[in-house]
């Protein structure tokens, strides 16, 4: 089957898609966008989190055919979406690097998409709100402490720079 989908603002097409394929497979293996990660493929880890028509979802649980005609944003599109200059990071991405929130990094893309969504909805979340918003994203390396630091840091930096934006 053929699937047409807009990914990170670009219209993309894939042919000969097997009907049982997930959006995750489509992105990773057919569209050259392996940033979204294949950690569990059962919706229990959040590593494949992407935005589908703006809404964070597990790409592993979206059938590729369901994405036909839809709009997808992956970790590869976060910086551009945030208006970062070419070669620069979005505030959330930069905060993850700066706060030491990245170790092996396999959970990072999904966490970034989830955190980006949280900060868009709530620019100044409480710790409990951050925890609840990120509770669908497993991390095995960090114990989450530095991830919480990163989200707080991104929120604080955005608040400071956002005065004029």
């Amino acid at each position: 089957m053929r699937v047409n989908v807009t990914v990170n603002g670009r219209p993309r097409q894939a042919d000969d898609v097997w009907e049982g394929e997930s959006l995750l497979y489509l992105l990773r293996e057919r569209l050259g966008l392996p940033g979204s990660k294949n950690a569990c493929e059962q919706g229990e880890c959040g590593s494949c989190t992407v935005r589908l028509d703006g809404v964070p979802v597990c790409a592993c649980l979206v059938a590729a055919g369901q994405a036909h005609g839809r709009d997808v944003v992956t970790v590869e599109g976060l910086a551009a979406r945030a208006g970062a200059a070419e070669g620069h990071l979005s505030p959330v991405q930069q905060a993850f690097v700066d706060a030491g929130a990245v170790q092996c990094g396999f959970c990072t893309p999904g966490l970034l998409v989830a955190a980006d969504d949280l900060l868009e909805r709530d620019p100044d979340p409480s710790d409990a709100d951050i925890r609840e918003a990120l509770s669908g994203n497993l991390c095995r390396c960090t114990g989450y402490e530095k991830i919480l630091d990163a989200v707080r840091l991104a929120a604080a930096r955005t608040a400071r720079s956002g005065q004029g934006a």
Partner: peptide
């Protein structure tokens, strides 16, 4: 599930 699951 998770926020992602609740969205779907």
């Amino acid at each position: 599930g998770s926020p992602q699951i609740r969205n779907r």
